[in-house]
Nucleic acid binder design. Structure first.
Lengths: 136, 136, 136, 136
DNA sequence: GTGGTCTAGACCACC
DNA sequence: GTGGTCTAGACCACG
């Protein structure tokens, strides 16, 4: 798992970490039980204070992506969403609306947007395939 | 031009405005000479403080995207070249990837995600239709 | 409402504030709608960083004691506990057990402990009486 | 000597131990020469790491409350004068006030609070009775 | 060594 | 002016 921070981004460093760790979990690059770097080590590597890394880990734990064991470390969890269908819609629809509006402003038509979505779904599936055949 | 604010985003409201207005100008959705909503009107519409909207307009003016005519309003200036296909991809793909990863963590499958995207595309089309038949 | 911090205490400053503000609300020294000092002003007065004061206010808001209006200030709320009887027991019993055990270690008998509890209940009632007759 | 740890408290576990052992010694609940539980045993009983218990014992030794005999265990030393009535009040009253304020915010009335206190006094008495008939 | 907490400085959105 | 957020330093509990 390769993690990096764009310090010029308006997106806060700890949320950049959250997104990247979630992407690693979704892509199969990290499997349940895998350990994450310690907050100190990752902080040093990324030139962040370890508290900033810890904040990302806390957020990831609250989202159910990882679990932390004080004194031991942090570990990826099996992916079990606690949300029902209605709650999932509630979370995803604002994201999709934002995407659709952005595409419209960029004069990207529905056809092309669908194509892009398919492309990224395929890209994720491909990476997952690679990880599932590579490791075991 | 459709403007919307995601109040839950860490991205500041005024920068969301700047980004959306710039995208509209760059994509050709807004033409040079088109007027922008007044600060007061837009603030009311988006439930933002007028100062927040004014800050966005100031930023846009300093970037040469719009010009303000005191007492008359704000107008788009002759604009930059619209984004080419590559630039559009560069903007949209991170958004789509973020959406795809979120869906994965919510255990929302590809089929259901495609359905949600179609639903929101339809929703936007419906609203646009209504506006285009209403105004003229 | 008089607030003060004991910097030598092991009890964190922000929790000392929480306790004192809750006591003020319970004693009637502060009424619903009353405003609290701003985080800056109180921080300066108590020689604390304003974030420390803000942390206390955040905790008080999460406990339903006050409400905060960004850009306006913080205000006492009407006392409405959201807990049912079972939850109240769950919260109070550990407190009572701690008290009972401490009394035992101090060789304070049940009779004397009951007397002390009555004394403090009376003390609170007296202060409340004073405030309710003084202000209106 | 009854020892208990409130894991939810901001007060560190090792200091909770120190306070309770000191109170026991000062109140006469423990006599000079009485032995303390072994670090290992107490850690297991209280679900604490042995290092945490050891840290409490070290602190107690440095305060002259106990003495450690390498390989034999820890023992209470000839102790300070037991707290007088005034000191007991000084220790208990803040605890009671905190309880009374918490009850108020939970909208638990005086009658119900008295009932809860009686309930916990009875609960402790029952446990103590059981231990005193069990051991001898 | 591990993660967790308290405090604080700087910056942001908003009135 | 108001409160809110991100980042960080120092210290603590724990293995």
């Amino acid at each position: 798992m390769i993690l990096s921070i764009n310090f010029n981004s308006a997106h806060p460093a700890y949320l950049q970490l959250v997104d990247q760790v979630k992407a690693a979990a979704a892509s199969g690059a990290a499997k349940p039980g895998d350990s994450l770097p310690s907050v100190r080590q990752l902080g040093e590597q990324l030139r962040l204070n370890r508290n900033t890394v810890a904040k990302a880990y806390t957020e990831l734990e609250s989202q159910g992506v990882i679990e932390t064991a004080a004194g031991k470390g942090c570990f990826f969890r099996a992916n079990r969403s606690p949300f029902n269908a209605g709650k999932k819609r509630e979370v995803l629809i604002p994201e999709i609306d934002s995407l659709v509006v952005k595409a419209h402003h960029l004069q990207v038509g529905n056809v092309e947007l669908r194509k892009l979505v398919e492309e990224r779904l395929d890209a994720l599936a491909t990476v997952r395939q690679k990880h599932s055949t590579q490791k075991p």
